[in-house]
């Protein structure tokens, strides 16, 4: 399975490939070494929980959250 991933900020795009056919968003984050707590994930522009499965060819956008103190 292949998924196109756009990272914000930076507008960098990566194609992530998996052997397994059933992939969840959390698997993508883990594969990219991204801490789930620090990002929002959109699939086709919609805010999507990390437990959700993605399908082949999906467009995923990973947005860093804005925080501080």
């Amino acid at each position: 399975m292949k998924v196109k991933v756009k990272l914000v900020p930076g507008e960098k795009e990566v194609n992530v490939q998996f052997k397994k056919s059933k992939i969840r968003i959390m698997d993508i984050l883990e594969d990219l070494g991204i801490d789930r707590e620090t990002v929002l994930v959109l699939v086709h522009g919609e805010l999507t929980p990390e437990e959700e499965y993605v399908t082949d060819g999906d467009e995923v956008e990973i947005l860093q959250v804005i925080s501080g103190g």
Binding site: L40, L42, L47, L63, V65, I66, S67
Partner: peptide
């Protein structure tokens, strides 16, 4: 932390 909905 900015709420996701507003950020999006």
């Amino acid at each position: 932390e900015i709420d996701p909905e507003t950020l999006l």
